[in-house]
Design a binder for these strands. Structure first.
Lengths: 104, 104
DNA sequence: TCAATTAGTCAAAAAAACATGACTACCAAC
DNA sequence: GTTGGTAGTCATGTTTTTTTGACTAATTGA
């Protein structure tokens, strides 16, 4: 009982998982903004011109499900929610940097 | 006259370009197979179960346009076409490896 | 000359991703 | 009690990506 249940493609191509987790119209930009500190829903809407609630919400949910961002309710003045890089998210920074360093 | 003409998102997020060039349903796997040597159209169709002519053709064209693969007509016995990693493609290997090394 | 292999193209359909606009719900200030 | 900010959801529509199946065309071997 040691067969894995990954789709065959990801089994033979580990990079594909990462690519999937980071790709999409808004996820790379959200990830990048999160490098500078916690990000918030409405903040992202303002910082990402052309974006919209639905897409940002979906991107945040997927980044959270991929364990790249962590969602926290901040018990402060105007009670709000923050998304911060998880440990895995931090580990991904080097991958991200190697992409940024690659200027064609 | 020094404004650039990149979409705002790519300007502020260089990683996004790479992500775009490598993402898609078949491109990561094709890239990975190309690491082991030249790949061919019909060979890929056989090596990628579930793929189809159209998708493989499109992926190859985009990888070629992104200057990641180079298309060559090989003047041999059964005249055929090979796709090999370009110089840029080789430079991308380190990025790709850093993704592969990242096992969540 | 016939059949197989090479490497595709094309039009159309299906599926996935993304956007739009309306709506919800909580909290605080005025 | 109404406005404004927090963070979303939901149904729908549009756009992009991917798949399907038919077709083309050159080369090779029998």
């Amino acid at each position: 009982m040691t067969t894995n249940n990954l789709p065959q493609d990801e089994a033979s191509c580990p990079a594909e998982g990462i690519l999937k987790q980071l790709s999409g119209k808004w996820k790379p930009q959200i990830f990048r903004l999160a490098l500078d500190g916690p990000v918030r829903f409405n903040g992202l809407l303002r910082q990402l011109p052309g974006s919209n609630k639905q897409s940002v919400a979906t991107a945040l949910k997927e980044l959270e499900e991929a364990d790249i961002l962590v969602k926290t309710v901040v018990q402060e003045k105007p009670l709000h929610i923050e998304y911060t890089l998880s440990e895995k998210g931090h580990a991904m920074v080097s991958v991200f940097r190697s992409m940024e360093g690659f200027l064609s």
